[in-house]
Amino acid sequence: MKKLESWIEHNTFHHSQFYDQLELLKQKEKTGLTISLCIPTLNEEATIGKEIVIFRSELMERYPLIDEIAVIDSGSTDKTLEVAASFGADTYFAGDILPSQGHKRGKGENLWKAIHQLKGDIICYVDADIKNIHPRFCYGLVAPLLYREEMQYVKAFYDRPLAFSQGIRPSGGGRVTEILVRPLFSLFYPELTGLVQPLSGEYAVRRKVLERLPFPIGYGVETSHIMDVYHEWGLEAFGQTDLDQRVHRNQETLSLGKMSFGILQSFLGRMQKMGMEGQLPDMTNTLRQFVAKDQQYEQVLYDIVEEERPPMIEIPEYREKMGY
């Protein structure tokens, strides 16, 4: 596992390494690359305003490191888009992008359609539910791509304190990662265990990679990306940046169960494609959980279908737009 140790040493960063944003801007100009920031949303009016204000101020007006900020929404029923637009973000309803491909509801759908809608050579995805938003959430991820040409896909990871005041409880050490993804990777892709938080929602990726990746539209998008990028471009394509603390909503265990179920579907589907499945049973799309009322227990069935989008480069409109 020397390769993995070397990767951890050379491809793991801390955001403070890129604190000098003027230097970063000079490096960006040297590379000639353009950068888009994409924030996928669904009912995020409480936090979206702050994200837009901070990113616009710090990364567009002070130092024009990013060339556009776009909010791609799955159909919010609150004021998410109104708030985002009022502070100068470009706002889109995912269903209006590439209408010929239809509209599927899910975060992965927004990320996938962003590739068609946004202009940048690098797209940085940042979730909208971050309470302690800071420009590092973007520049910390983009910077390695500006300095290291061989790097394609940079993921965030965080310090996750277990004790926190005022009743906010961070996600307690990434439960799905630790209970599901890390054991799976340890079994089948040991090199990928170097990623501290493979499921983090913040990452920056080069367009030439994004346009060649299929996108599960649901929970499996991050896991499948990691497997696909690893398969196609190898471990060296990955970087990861420590962004310190991330404060966000805590999810209930039942929600994490759904997430895990989606991730498992993506994971096993990929293993099949890569010929690693062995004697796996047929997969169903139904997850079974329990709810309790007094002393009675009921089984609740969830149909969680991990639909998938093809690589963007296979879409005729996209090929035409990009002149391929």
Partner: peptide
């Protein structure tokens, strides 16, 4: 210092 210092931005 222990107070939640989160600031929210509305329109």
């Amino acid at each position: 210092t222990s107070v939640d210092h989160t600031v929210t931005v509305q329109t």
